[in-house]
């Protein structure tokens, strides 16, 4: 079955001057067409739990099963997608998730980043503009892993960790449509 989604004007998947850079270096932009955008808009959840889920999802998108599989593969390779599959909620598995921050002296920033990132409990880590200039998320399989990880970071860096456990969750839904 041919792919009925018409090609659209080619746009870059990443702006030329993204203000953020990752350690892995520059992101290589790839062109996204209407089918890619439809996949990004409509397949962030509700991937079918049927025997042949790609065929079912492809029918809804108006493309062939093999086309959908190939597109997802390409979007993963180009790092437009970070993953494809189930998104787990740590707390519901008995684990814990805590946002924490450090005020890192500029001259020690790289060494502290390396020490913090070395801990497997550190899931994300971002540099931000504030006196508290390093913000990371600790994710552990059990709640008692959090204070252990905090103690390990304090021991490795000599800096006090400011922990910001959530006290109430008003909203979480990381579903953003493609802007490109």
């Amino acid at each position: 079955m041919p792919d009925p989604v018409p090609p659209s004007p080619v746009v870059s998947a990443a702006p030329a001057a993204a203000p953020e850079t990752s350690r892995r270096g520059a992101f290589t932009p790839i062109p996204l067409d209407d089918l890619d955008r439809a996949i990004l808009a409509r397949l962030q959840g509700d991937f079918p739990l049927s025997e042949a889920p790609f065929a079912e999802a492809a029918a809804a998108l108006g493309c062939a099963e093999a086309t959908l599989i190939a597109r997802i593969e390409r979007l993963l390779e180009a790092r437009v997608l970070t993953r494809f599959g189930p998104l787990f909620q740590v707390e519901r598995m008995g684990g814990a998730f805590v946002l924490a921050a450090l005020a890192v002296p500029e001259e020690r920033y790289e060494a502290v980043a390396e020490a913090v990132n070395a801990l497997p409990e550190v899931a994300h880590n971002y540099r931000r503009e504030h006196a508290l200039n390093m913000w990371f998320v600790l994710a552990t399989e059990t709640p008692d892993g959090i204070p252990r990880a905090i103690a390990a970071i304090e021991a490795a860096t000599g800096l006090p960790v400011f922990a910001f456990p959530k006290e109430e969750e008003f909203f979480v839904e990381m579903k953003l449509e493609a802007r490109v």
């Binding site: 998947a13 990443a14 702006p15 993204a18 953020e20 992101f27 932009p29 996204l32 996949i39 990004l40 397949l43 962030q44 959840g45 509700d46 991937f47 739990l49 997802i72 979007l75 180009a78 790092r79 437009v80 997608l81 970070t82 993953r83 494809f84 599959g85 189930p86 998104l87 787990f88 909620q89 519901r92 598995m93 990381m174 953003l176 449509e177 493609a178 802007r179 490109v180």
Partner: peptide, 15 residues
């Protein structure tokens, strides 16, 4: 335990 099943975009890459 699973929030959802599907594609997880790199949000920088999608604009």
């Amino acid at each position: 335990v699973i929030r959802r099943i599907g594609v997880v975009p790199n949000h920088y890459a999608i604009g």
